[in-house]
Amino acid sequence: MYPEFLPDPNPLYRNALREKLERIDMLARRTRIAIPEFYVGSILAVTYSEPHAPGKVNKFVGICIERNGSGLRSSFLLRNIVDNQGIEVCYELYDPAIQKIDCLRLEKRLDSHLRYLRDAPAKYSTFPFDLEPEFLPEGASVPVNDIKVPLNGLPWLEKWERQELKGIIIKGVTFSKKRNAKTKISAKPWEKYDLMKIYRETIPEEEQNEIFNEVYTKLHEIEITKRRLKHKRTFIRPQKTG
């Protein structure tokens, strides 16, 4: 639920003290702003202060296609199509300029990233800016959207056929003989059995428990105050007229 609390597994970037300080800062930020639970494939609305806009506030709605980074540097990438123009905006999760993050539709997809939507028809990444938030019943698990996205013809931005993606349909695309041969060479079907590789790329469970135990009580408190505030009436600043 909180993947950004886990540090980067690469031992070159590990530093216990820095990680601890970052966690304190993240919790401090979370007391100020409600960061909802979301996954790759969820639809988010981000309201942030934009010094370049006339009203100094801007809002962007889009599907989360990628989550990157860990700790204070964690970020997510939103994609939408506005006026037939694909637009992607990267936001940092703990950016102090962000005023509000709303999860309009909470769901998961079959893949760990949805960058292939760049090469898919426009309807798969078009979301209206006035989308109503959908609420799941309390205690329900996060639904998995098992939609399969057909891709456009070549050329593509990445070699999707090599990435073992579950959420795409490659149909009506003919690869050259050379490309097929290279796909066969670069395939690594044994990698999912490589325990050492999995160990190197993830934080061990004992360490995860240690980190989550540290932050859990604080996060729980934040959750309770958030729920209490939801029932309270919010103060709406009266508009200046005349």
Partner: peptide, 16 residues
């Protein structure tokens, strides 16, 4: 007025 290259946070990146 709009670029395909990777942009700074909060700056939109376009498809064309």
């Amino acid at each position: 007025v709009g670029l395909k290259q990777v942009q700074a946070p909060k700056v939109p990146k376009f498809d064309t």
